[in-house]
Design a binder for these strands. Structure first.
Lengths: 352, 352
DNA sequence: AGAGGTTGCCAAAAGGTTTTGGCAGAGCGG
DNA sequence: CCGCTCTGCCAAAACCTTTTGGCAACCTCT
């Protein structure tokens, strides 16, 4: 029983015009509140109320065809949708888009699908006449953006444009790491170890740089015996921590490359009979969704600004679109967004 | 220096036609491989190669206007984008959409934004002429779908339509839970506790039902002293586990409502000096991204079919769209997708 | 040679909107 | 009453496709 679901024939601007006894021009002007146009208040009211009564729903496809803008922006994620972080980026982008009355169209390219597939994906977005494209990648290597992206304003998340022509946003991992070290130093630690990831990605470099900078700013000399590495998972953190803790003059704190490695550090500490944080302080990186808060004791770590990067991307994109279409490719410096320290319970104050 | 970035005027189907010396009709037919149309092989080749050379990019807005279909499907998530699971749903939907040559437009509604906001979001998608809408919610309460959704084929993820008119897909939590219990039973356990969540959501009910069914199928009598509950986080799991383990005849296994609570159980076990899995076996639910695999010992748990639900949703939606537009609202049973057990290391074989 | 079928292509309409360039009428000053 | 400026509205073109209906030309029989 299709209750009141009689098939309602689509009502268009024409129907509104007819019902209101005006031209479609007038309806369009009224509904869009076109400036510099003259329509009596009476007519405006009539048009508006009739449009409402008729249940008029504008057709944005038609509108887009005429105005040559779709009010859509494309989010091209490269493998990233697979990572737990992806949701935050998408959410940030989506909410910022909503704020600007834009809609987000997303496509995920598999990393191993090759450059051709990625170009096809970009093209698909462009065929849809998106006003701009966000290209988000997992590791911020330098990247040469698919040339189709030149056809349309674009911004990069998590990667640098090799030609330096496309605006990019990245997490400022180094500063985050340095802040974390500063936090440890403030708590009285001076023998601070670093369990880095053994695979070479920009994050590895950035966090190491930040660690060293943190030490330097505290006037603590670098000690390479306090730097270990392992695979960027619990197992790697376990082994690296064992190595770091298995000596006379053991560190009082371990800074792990990421939260997963920190989990390994927790295990190592437990096996050595060291309580966290009193026996050993441990910090991580990533503030990975449920881990950091669920573990005991809750892990002090650094959050990545995924949401913020997503939002930044669509914000800059809209600026780009607004600005003269000939100037948007002006060379820009990448934007580094801060990675805030998330204070929890895995760091103890120690007496110096 | 805008290298070869001279502003290329958009090339349309008309330009291709002119260059090829044929009509736009022919170009359209050739490029779309319209069936039942006759064009010589020579002309086809010419058109295709000219289109390629000119870099013709079809305008899907215009196409959609004419064909009255946008090849877009809308994903309306209600708060869900905030949860770590969201990414998987989106990914599943996206990849299935790609397979059908569709694009996914997503909008996230905040739960607290109220029904009006959600209706506005639905309307925004409809204005974009999406061919169908997926409405995904966090908790699968029954839900009365925004009436705007009646205007367009729709499917539900994680919720039931109160009117029973919109197809819905849900995780079969009960069976997953029963499987988990069966696994424990197979390993020799008979005193199996359940640490449930204290808040009332469908999942609470479903997992409890599955737990009980698992026991029954194993011929183990229900023992309510083995059922505890707490907040659905590490803290709640900790307290519930303490309560369950603090007795003479303690259980040999604890089934936790979710992985976060399982983390609490791990802590409780540790404090009581029970090794996992030998002293006590622990299982969770959700297979929450990095937790379950990173913890030591790795947690045996049950995965939710988020990806599969996303994919199912767009698959059914495309079927709905294809089928006669008058029949798509036929009443349907909800689809329950299996929650597979993920075997890891937190369960020990014990001798009966 | 005419009928009838095929082949290969095309002109024009349609889809729903925005935007341009007006045009009538009212009001007003002279 | 003429000329001028506003006011309030409109017709038609444009955006880029797809699709309908048909038309020449050619071929094949009889």
């Amino acid at each position: 029983m299709p209750d009141e679901d009689v098939v309602v024939p689509k009502v268009g601007i024409r129907d509104v015009a007819r019902a209101a006894g005006v031209s479609v021009t007038t309806v369009s002007h009224v509904l869009n509140e076109t400036p510099h146009t003259r329509t009596s208040e009476a007519t405006r009211d009539r048009v508006r109320s009739i449009a409402r009564d008729l249940g008029y729903t504008p057709n944005r496809l038609a509108r887009g065809l005429r105005t040559r803008t779709s009010d859509m922006i494309g989010l091209l994620t490269e493998e990233i949708a697979t990572t737990p972080h992806a949701g935050r980026i998408i959410l940030g982008a989506q909410e910022e888009a909503s704020r600007h009355n834009l809609t987000l169209a997303i496509i995920n390219s598999h990393l191993d699908a090759g450059a051709d597939a990625r170009r096809a994906d970009a093209r698909a977005l462009i065929e849809r006449q998106v006003d701009g494209i966000i290209y988000a990648t997992v590791f911020h290597h330098e990247v040469s953006v698919p040339r189709e992206l030149r056809a349309v304003p674009a911004v990069l998340i998590g990667a640098l444009d090799r030609q330096g022509v496309v605006p990019a946003v990245l997490p400022d991992e180094a500063s985050g790491a340095a802040d974390l070290v500063a936090l440890l130093v403030d708590a009285g630690h001076r023998r601070i170890a670093f369990a880095n990831s053994s695979i070479e990605v920009p994050a590895t470099q950035g966090r190491l740089v930040g660690y060293l900078r943190g030490l330097e700013e505290a006037g603590i000399p670098r000690d390479d015996r306090l730097i270990a590495s392992g695979v960027s998972e619990a197992a790697g953190g376990y082994e690296a921590s064992l190595e770091l803790l298995d000596r006379e003059d053991r560190p009082t704190a371990i800074f792990c490359y990421n939260d997963r490695m920190a989990m390994g550090a927790y295990r190592a500490a437990q096996e050595l009979g060291l309580r966290i944080p009193d026996g050993i302080s441990i910090v991580g990186f990533d503030d990975q969704a449920p881990i950091a808060a669920s573990v005991y004791p809750a892990l002090t770590t650094v959050a990545l600004p995924h949401y913020e990067m997503g939002a930044w991307a669509v914000a800059t994109l809209t600026r780009l679109v607004q600005s003269s279409s000939t100037s948007w490719y002006r060379s820009t410096h990448p934007t580094w967004l801060p990675c805030p320290v998330v204070l929890r319970e895995s760091v103890a104050q120690i007496n110096r």
